[in-house]
Design a protein around this nucleic acid. Structure first.
Lengths: 214, 214
DNA sequence: CTGAAATTGGGTATTTATACCCAATTTCAC
DNA sequence: GTGAAATTGGGTATAAATACCCAATTTCAG
């Protein structure tokens, strides 16, 4: 049986080396390429296509979601597995919706990563046990079903970021040359969309979801 | 010249493999041990001591700060280098205060990690260029010089956590069986201690500093 | 071009947070 | 035990945020 051909995209040199080392001793998996960013990945895929692509979500140039979408459109035969530190329901959902067929945390032991590769190669979907539970829990308790980032408009994201950085509505209004009422309107929409009832929880949830920077 | 003897503590299998692979091809560095948690590290150090210890800050059982403090007390000859994803001034300060002699991000390229090991082995301190800038910047602009976690009292931490979880002062007062005035007093102290002027920024900063959970 | 969504802005009220003033009691380290 | 820090609580104001009502304009995709 031919080994499964695997490629990696990750901007952390240590992670790339770790995977390289892991696959070195497995004869049913062959590492065919490593890329540090989305651009070089897209270049490389023109030359050769792996069976499985391990894809980091946080890359310097492209979002993992965009890459997954591109790849599943242009190279549907490649099984994309998200390999990331983000144990967040919204990222999990968005990656699967973008065409990924697996989601594994970087903290996972070797066996889990290998299992994910084999299952996805065999046409199954794969998610770690803990993540299954997380997604299930979220779908029961949380009203926000879609990725909120897609839900927020540009202005809302802009206002959200300014709220998080120590500005009041009045100050935000002044810095954007808008009426305070307009800012209040955006604030209200932010509270509705993230399903919280005050600014404190809004910021906490926004940071959790990666919508605002600390 | 004898190679530098290096040990690793990190709960991520991939990172351990990555470092293992990196050192495999360097003849001036020898990897003598890898540990997944603080307990096994402390056990292992009784048997053999490396020249350099690469220490992850987030471990399942002990904080990196505690470990660094223990090691620099019991094995002062070991050069402790923090190897972490946390590019946060307060962690940097706390690790150096706890006796670490280097601080490197996991995103760093191989050369930087090797450089850190060599410099610390030669008795120097080491910090990445970007982190130097961060610490410098912070010491100029930020009034909070110590780790704020040490600064916050138990009640303040408790109130902070409740603020972050969608409760108003009145609700917090009720759930703790206290007067709303008392909660307001704690809130005021939180704003003063973290040097922010409203709840939004308080939460943002608290999360950044690891004082509140998302 | 058309229509839905986004962005803008206003009125009015209430609730909440913040900023000052004040002090008694409790806790805990030295 | 002593004393500093923490915790508790009050009065009074103002500023800010939130909750409703309303609609005109702009943007942008189908």
């Amino acid at each position: 049986m031919n080994p499964i051909r695997v490629a990696i995209v990750d901007d952390h040199p240590l992670i790339r080396k770790g995977l390289y080392n892991m696959f070195q001793y497995l004869d049913n998996i062959q590492l065919t390429a490593t890329y540090a960013d989305g651009r070089s990945l897209l270049e490389g895929l023109k030359e050769q296509q792996p069976d499985i692509l391990l894809l980091d979500i946080h890359l310097p140039d492209h979002s993992g979601e965009t890459l997954a979408r591109l790849i599943s459109r242009d190279h549907p035969a490649i099984g994309v597995i998200a390999l990331t530190n983000l144990d967040n329901v919204y990222y999990i959902r968005s990656m699967f919706k973008a065409g990924a067929r697996g989601y594994v945390l970087k903290t996972a032991p070797e066996e889990v990563i290998v299992e994910a590769i084999q299952k996805v190669y065999n046409g199954e979907r794969f998610m770690e046990g803990g993540l299954r539970e997380l997604v299930l829990q979220a779908s029961l308790t949380d009203g926000v079903q879609r990725n909120p980032q897609l839900l927020l408009t540009k202005r809302e994201q802009e206002v959200l970021q300014l709220i998080a950085s120590n500005l009041t509505s009045k100050e935000i209004a002044e810095s954007l040359f808008l009426s305070k009422r307009t800012i209040d309107h955006h604030r209200n929409n932010l509270l509705l969309k993230l399903n919280v009832k005050n600014t404190a929880a809004l910021i906490a949830k926004a940071i959790k979801l990666g919508l605002a920077q600390t």
